[in-house]
Design a protein around this nucleic acid. Structure first.
Length: 749
DNA sequence: TCGACGATCGTTTTT
DNA sequence: CGATCGTCGA
C-alpha cells in the first residue's frame, strides 16, 4: 500500500491498471515520475511480479538512474535487478549478448554523429563529390531519417513506410551501412534498427524477449521515433501489457526524429487502449498554469488536456521589454536580486532559459562581472574535446581493431611519419580486400605480398612499430588487463603525452590536465564496477553523456540553459529571455511552416511550465545578431498569453539611441513606441511589402539547365544582373549559378 | 605536412 | 561578428 499513498484518483487509475495497452497523458508537473515509480512498486509489491519481468525504457540515462533509485528505495529492493534503461543501452546490450544472430562481433563500436559524418564524407569523396555539390550533412540527415523510420538493409515493404527507393541518396545509405559494417560499428540509430532486424529475422529471439518482459513501461513517449514504436509493438505483442507515458505538448525533439504521431495515433497501433490523463498540476501557481494552458491551446496537433491546479494564484507573469540584450541581462539580474534579497532565496532557485546557446553570452558577462555564481547546463561536453576523443579513439581501437575510423584518426597522432598519402594507400588496399584498415595493415606487414604498395623503409618501420604497439594493447585487453592499465600504456607508450608535453604552451597543459581527468574517470569506473571491461567503460561514455552536476555550494548557482535542456526540471523563479520573432520562434521554424511553429510553441510551453512561483519573459527591441543590429519585434507567443495573467513592463530609456538607429533602418514601422504600454501597441501590422525585386526565378520553381538537366530552385540571392540561384538536381547535387550567364530556362511542365 | 588565408554560414542535441 | 572548414601554396 506504500506505493499508492498520496496519489490522486487519475494517478491511481494509471498505477493500478495493467490489463492491456495504456497511454498516460501526463501534463507538465502532474506527478508523472511519481506515478511511474508507484506503478513499478505496485507491480512488484501488490501484484507480486518478479523484477526481471518488467522493463522500463527512458530516453536519458539520468531519468533511468532516477527511476531505478526511487523504485528501489520505495520497495527496499536492490535496483540492479530491475531493467530500467534507455532505448539505446537496452539495444546495445541485447546486440552484444545475441551477437550470433546479427552480423557484427560482440565488441562493435558505436559511432556518434561526428564519426557518422566522417563516414559520409569519405563515401562522397570516393564518388568524387565535393562537399559543395552534395552536403555531407544533408546525406547524413537523410540516412538518419531512414533509421528513425526503422529502415535497415534488406528490409522489405519500404514503400509502406513512405520510403522512396528511387531517391538519389538511397545508394549512400547502402554504402554507409557497408562502411559501418566493415568497421564493426553501429551508429545510434543503427542500435535500434539492428534490433528490429534481429527480431524480424529470428522470431525465436523475439519470442524470448517477449516472454521475459511481460510488463513494459515507457517514459517520455512523445520523444519516441517510428523505429522505437515498432520495437515496442514487437516486444508488447505477446502480453500487450504496455504502458506509455508522455505529453504531446512537450514534444520538442521532432528534428531528432521524434514523431508526435506516436502519441496522436497510439490507438491505431494498439487495440483496446486505455487512456488516462493526468491534468492536475502540482508545480506551478495558477497564473502560470492558466497562461501556459492558453498558449498551448493554440496548437492543433494535440490530444488535448486541461491542466488545472489547486495551488495559489501566485504572482502574475511579468513580460518585460528591454532595449538591447545587455539591458535584458541587467534587468534579469536586478529582478533576481530583488527577489533573492526579499525572501532569502538561494541562487539555485533561479534559472534563465534561452532558445539558442549564443544568448547566454550577455548573461555570463554580467554574472561574472558581479561575481554571482552560475552554471551553464549543457554546452561543450568533456568527451567532445579533441584530446579526449584522441585517447578514446586509441581505446576503442584496442577493443575493436576493425574500427577503421578510430585507426585513421590516431594513426599519425602523434606524428609518426604515416601521413595522408600512406593512409590513403592503406585505405585503398582495405577497400580492395574488403577488410578493415587494421586487417589490411596486418596483411601487408605479414609480408607475403606487397599488393603493389611501395612504402619507403622508414615508413614501413614506422608502421611496424605502430602495429606492434597496438597489437600489445589488444593482447593485454583480450587477456583481461584492467582498463586503467591499458589507458596508462596508451597515453605513455603511444607518445601522445610526450608530444603534448613538448609543446610547452598553455593549451597543451590544459589538454594534459584533461587527460588526467579522463584517467580519474576510468579509475572511478573501475572501483565502482571491479570486473568491468574497457569495452563496457567505452560504451558507458558513448551512450551516457550525463555530466556531473555536483558543484552545489551553500548559496547554490543560477542555472543557465537552453529550453531543450530545461525539460523535466523545475525552478521557483524562471526567466525566459529573448522572446522575439526569429529567435523564439526561430526563423528556421517560421520558414518551415505551421507544424514547426507548433513545435516552437510547445517549447515555449515547456519553458513556462518549469516555473513554480514566478515567471518572467523578456524581449528586446534591438539585438546584435551576427554583428548586426536586428529589430525582430516581440514573439507572437507573447500575445497568446492572456492579459489577466500578465503584467507588461516597458523599460524604455529616454532618448534612446537605439530608437533612432532603428527608425533609420525602418525597423520600427510595425509598432509605435511612443504610446503607453498596452497590448495593442505591440500588434504587428502587415509590413508594407517591398516592391517585387527584379528576379527571373522564384524559390521552389523548376528549371532546365542545358548541361545538368532539370532541377529545382532551392534559393535565390540578389536580383537583376546580380541574381544568383541555387539549384538542386535530381541526383541530389546542389549548384549555384549567376542567372545572367547560366543556360537556365524555366521548366513549365 | 603544415600554416595562412578566404569563403561560408550561422537552432535546439535525451542517445 | 566569429568560428569552422576547405583550399592552396610553400
Amino acid at each position: 500500500m506504500v506505493a499508492n499513498s498520496g496519489l490522486n484518483s487519475a494517478q491511481k487509475n494509471a498505477v493500478e491498471y495493467f490489463d492491456g495497452p495504456m497511454m498516460v497523458l501526463a501534463g507538465a508537473g502532474s506527478g508523472k515520475t511519481r506515478m511511474l515509480v508507484a506503478k513499478m512498486a505496485h507491480l512488484l509489491q501488490e501484484a507480486n511480479v518478479g523484477p526481471y519481468k518488467i522493463i522500463a525504457l527512458t530516453f536519458s540515462n539520468k531519468a533511468a538512474r532516477e527511476m531505478r533509485e526511487r523504485v528501489s528505495r520505495l520497495c527496499g529492493i536492490n535496483g540492479q535487478a530491475l531493467t530500467v534503461t534507455t532505448f539505446h543501452s537496452f539495444c546495445a546490450r541485447m546486440l552484444r549478448t545475441e551477437v550470433e544472430y546479427f552480423g557484427l562481433s560482440k565488441n562493435f563500436s558505436i559511432y556518434d554523429e561526428d564519426e557518422s559524418k566522417a563516414i559520409v564524407k569519405s563515401i562522397l569523396g570516393k564518388y568524387g563529390i565535393s562537399p559543395k555539390e552534395i552536403s555531407p550533412y544533408d546525406v547524413l540527415s537523410y540516412i538518419d531519417d531512414l533509421k528513425n523510420k526503422g529502415v535497415y538493409q534488406g528490409r522489405e515493404n519500404l514503400e509502406a513506410l513512405g520510403i522512396d527507393l528511387d531517391d538519389p541518396f538511397f545508394k549512400y545509405f547502402d554504402e554507409y551501412e557497408h562502411e559501418l559494417h566493415r568497421s564493426n560499428a553501429l551508429d545510434f540509430g543503427g542500435l535500434i534498427t539492428a534490433v528490429l532486424c534481429l527480431f524480424e529475422r529470428h522470431p525465436h529471439v523475439l519470442k524470448r524477449f517477449q516472454q521475459r518482459y511481460e510488463y513494459i513501461l515507457v517514459d517520455e513517449y512523445q520523444d519516441t521515433n517510428r523505429a522505437q514504436l515498432e520495437l515496442l509493438k514487437l516486444l508488447a505483442s505477446e502480453h500487450k501489457k504496455i504502458c506509455v507515458v508522455g505529453d504531446e505538448d512537450q514534444s520538442i525533439y521532432s528534428w531528432r526524429g521524434a514523431d508526435i504521431n506516436n502519441i496522436l495515433d497510439f490507438e491505431k497501433h494498439f487495440t483496446n487502449v486505455k487512456i488516462v490523463k493526468l491534468e492536475q498540476n502540482y508545480r506551478s501557481s495558477a497564473h502560470i498554469i492558466k497562461a501556459a494552458s492558453a498558449v498551448i491551446g493554440n496548437n492543433v496537433l494535440r490530444k488535448g488536456k486541461q491542466l488545472w491546479t489547486e495551488n495559489d494564484e501566485g504572482e502574475k507573469i511579468t513580460i518585460a521589454e528591454l532595449e538591447t540584450e545587455k539591458d535584458e541581462a541587467n534587468f534579469v539580474l536586478s529582478e533576481l536580486e530583488k527577489i533573492r534579497k526579499a525572501g532569502q532565496e538561494k541562487y539555485h532557485d533561479f534559472a534563465i532559459f534561452y532558445r539558442n546557446n549564443f544568448q547566454s553570452r550577455p548573461f555570463e558577462d554580467v554574472l561574472r562581472q558581479k561575481n554571482i555564481p552560475y552554471r551553464i547546463v549543457g554546452g561543450i561536453k568533456f568527451y567532445d574535446r579533441k584530446e579526449i576523443k584522441d585517447v578514446l579513439a586509441y581505446l576503442r581501437l584496442v577493443v575493436n581493431p576493425q574500427d577503421s575510423l578510430a585507426l585513421s584518426r590516431i594513426i599519425n597522432i602523434p606524428t609518426r611519419g604515416i601521413g595522408a598519402t600512406t593512409l590513403k594507400k592503406l585505405e585503398d588496399l582495405a577497400g580492395q580486400l574488403n577488410l578493415s584498415l587494421w586487417g589490411a595493415i596486418e596483411k601487408l606487414l605479414a609480408g607475403a605480398d606487397d599488393f603493389g604498395i611501395r612504402l619507403t623503409p622508414k615508413i614501413k618501420l614506422a608502421l611496424k612499430n605502430f602495429a606492434s604497439f597496438l597489437g600489445e594493447c589488444i593482447y593485454l585487453n583480450e587477456k583481461g588487463t584492467s582498463p586503467k592499465i591499458i589507458f596508462e600504456k596508451v597515453i605513455h607508450e603511444s607518445g601522445y603525452l610526450d608530444e603534448l608535453r613538448a609543446m610547452r604552451d598553455y593549451e597543451s597543459a590544459a589538454r594534459i590536465e584533461n587527460i588526467g581527468e579522463f584517467g580519474r574517470a576510468i579509475e572511478e569506473f573501475q572501483s565502482a564496477t571491479p570486473n568491468a571491461t574497457l569495452a563496457e567503460f567505452i560504451e558507458g561514455i558513448t551512450l551516457d553523456t550525463t555530466q556531473n552536476l555536483d558543484t552545489d555550494n551553500q548559496m547554490g548557482e543560477i542555472s543557465l540553459m537552453t529550453i531543450h535542456g530545461a525539460k523535466g526540471l523545475e525552478f521557483p523563479f524562471v526567466f525566459v529571455v529573448g522572446a522575439e520573432e526569429g529567435i523564439f520562434p526561430s526563423s528556421k521554424s517560421m520558414e518551415r511552416g505551421q507544424n514547426s511553429v507548433e513545435e516552437e510553441r510547445r517549447l515555449f510551453y515547456v519553458a513556462m511550465t518549469r516555473a513554480m512561483e514566478k515567471l518572467f519573459i523578456t524581449f528586446v527591441r534591438g539585438r546584435v545578431l551576427w554583428g548586426q543590429l536586428k529589430f525582430n519585434g516581440p514573439s507572437r507567443f507573447l500575445f497568446e498569453v492572456p492579459k489577466e495573467n500578465t503584467i507588461w513592463s516597458q523599460n524604455k530609456k529616454p532618448n534612446s539611441l537605439l530608437e533612432d538607429v532603428g527608425k533609420e533602418h525602418g525597423a520600427f514601422d510595425n509598432y509605435d513606441f511612443s504610446q503607453e504600454v498596452d497590448h495593442e501597441r505591440y500588434v504587428i501590422h502587415e509590413k508594407a511589402k517591398a516592391p517585387p525585386p527584379n528576379v527571373k526565378f522564384q524559390k521552389g520553381s523548376r528549371i532546365i539547365h542545358t548541361v545538368y538537366g532539370k532541377g529545382t530552385v532551392l534559393d535565390t540571392e540578389g536580383f537583376g544582373a546580380e541574381e544568383k540561384v541555387i539549384i538542386m538536381f535530381p541526383d541530389g547535387a546542389k549548384k549555384r549559378f549567376l542567372v545572367k550567364f547560366a543556360p537556365i530556362t524555366a521548366d513549365h511542365n
